[in-house]
Nucleic acid binder design. Structure first.
Lengths: 202, 202, 202, 202
DNA sequence: AATGAATGAGGGTTCATTCAT
DNA sequence: GATGAATGAACCCTCATTCAT
């Protein structure tokens, strides 16, 4: 009921504690996966008793939810950073390099994969990641529409398809990096950029 | 004390039993994930006692490994199916449609994600998927080289990069489909094909 | 280090606080039982912090003890209400209807059962309810003796047995109502009254 | 699903194991109550590992359910034992003495109270005891109807009320014995018998 | 070859109680 | 007087694995 959720606009102390847990959980999940990391281990990593974690999070799943949310915010701010640029497409394409580095961080990817795996069998998490994906995807669609300028406008479905393919490129590369961490980044970047340009301008 | 592994060139009976287990495990893993599916459930699905499974597999991890291996073979055969086609690039691009359907099968993706998650923390599985990824990737690279025809030849790294991007497109879309199963397939396919063409012919 | 118990003849404020806790605890115990109601829930119901409850009660058991005590007083006052009536037996028998309603209140019974269950394993509570039962039972015996009037006097044991049977009728019906809340009250009342009359006048 | 329940018409070994658990649980619940007795303690008492108990019972509640059922069977056989007697009422009244001893066994009562307490907050157990009470009550009603002979027949509700009052007498005495184990049995028995006769013949 | 009874460590979670503020 | 953050042992339950048959 009012276990978690009560920690809302509270003092920074509580907020700090929460983040302490999240940081610890993040690290533990990275190393052992969602199921592999026990609450006991997380508690130890957070320098906190097991029971006390439950003051800040209703259960283990709530911790994952918070971490997913964190990740969404990160992606969102990345997308937003190109907004309002004068030559939008060029900005997006240039940004691709930065995103590429981001995406090759195996730590982050491992966590994302962990979450996706969980989603396959936990409907609650599935719903969560579906929802959390909508905002960035919509934003990406808007950016694409915005940048069309002279070119003919696109239907909603066309916009969606383009956003999906761009997203797929990055998420796909993320997976590739997980499979084999030494991707030839330098050779890949221009290919990526060409693909993005193609999808945007086509 | 007869560990598993001794079942090598044995009668087809044993082999059939093994496959019985694998089929059951596959189905169970699909539904509940590696950690979610218990040995008891797998045994029941395989019409076999729990204990008897241990005659054919040393432990649960060995089953997982076998399933991963299976998955690799599936991907390989997919790529091989375009080999030797007269107009190779066109064949690959046409094949994209089929692959797209394949890739949007959330069941298969769930398993792939499961494997990747497992790899993040189980070095044995990590090694396995790294190795298992090399063959298809190399094959893809060869196909790309083979199809260049008139165009200038590419360095190994260039080939690798192209193969990675094509792979990323498909694996990325696979992830996208997992996040949101109702992708606009019709609008996505031509975008994908253009991207592939671009990467191949560039 | 001021344990509870020191709160004796103190200001009405402290007393009010104590009762606040008891009222809350009563409500919570009714709904969830002694073990089901957590201190946290009781504290919330009492509009008080968890820790502060420990200023007024040494521990949870002390709260339970206080509630048991309360219950005893309730039963006592019920019996006293017929005392001194001119035609005592008739008064008792008439009262039976009221008592019946009282007894069919499943909320009260739930608490009584809770107390009895606790008594089976907590010697302190056992002692408490044994003592607390003596007064009403003795009172009931006196009433019976008092009402014999013309009839021959009864030995202590005879009186005790009669009181026990009357008590058993009511407590038994209480249990019956708990097992099945829709007792045929109308048909039961005259039977009860006849039984009581029989036991009293025999 | 098919955790428990599978142990049905199986070999006596499984049946014996089940009873081993029930006996242990019975003893533990008696001593510490349903919530007080941990599965670990029950397991130790049953000379069995914790996990193995779950081969025979789906969960702790299922153990209680089985014990409740056991008790019902006991009561039923008690009621049945007078069936078909030539002078039915006399037989029932004579049986009262035996039942009285039964009812004064505080061990059994403690368990019954435990179950009732649990029922107050666990709807599943509530349903269970409601159901389990119906059969004996119905049987008792039938016996009463059967024994009326010359006397005018009774409506269903009248029968029910009479059965309830008889049941209340015994269950009430059970509670009395729990509150104070040294009831004056000798003096109580004739009172009980008179009450039963009254209720039956009225 | 085949069974499934048996183990016990470890999982997530709850809760009475304490104590610094 | 009053708070609620903090503890940690104990709860029920699950599961990979072993072994007598």
């Amino acid at each position: 009921m009012n276990k978690a959720g009560k920690v809302e606009g509270e003092g920074s102390k509580a907020q700090a504690r929460r983040e302490q847990v999240l940081a610890a959980a993040h690290a533990c999940f990275l190393q052992s996966g969602f199921h592999g990391a026990s609450m006991a281990v997380i508690a130890k990593a957070a320098n906190m008793s097991v029971g006390h974690i439950y003051h800040y999070f209703e259960n283990k799943e709530a911790i994952i939810a918070a971490i997913v949310e964190e990740n969404v915010q990160h992606v969102l701010s990345n997308i937003r950073s190109v907004r309002g640029a004068p030559r939008l497409y060029e900005a997006m394409i240039e940004k691709a390099g930065e995103r590429l580095d981001d995406v090759m961080d195996t730590g982050k990817t491992a966590l994302m994969v962990e979450v996706l795996a969980e989603a396959s069998r936990n409907p609650h998490v599935a719903e969560l990641i579906k929802l959390s994906d909508q905002t960035p995807l919509k934003l990406l669609g808007e950016l694409i529409a915005e940048g069309r300028q002279a070119r003919p406008a696109l239907s909603q479905e066309e916009l969606r398809a383009r956003a999906e393919v761009v997203a797929a490129l990055f998420e796909g590369l993320q997976i590739r990096a997980l499979r084999n961490p030494d991707l030839p980044r330098a050779a890949i970047l221009p290919l990526m950029q060409d693909c993005i340009r193609l999808v945007l301008e086509r």
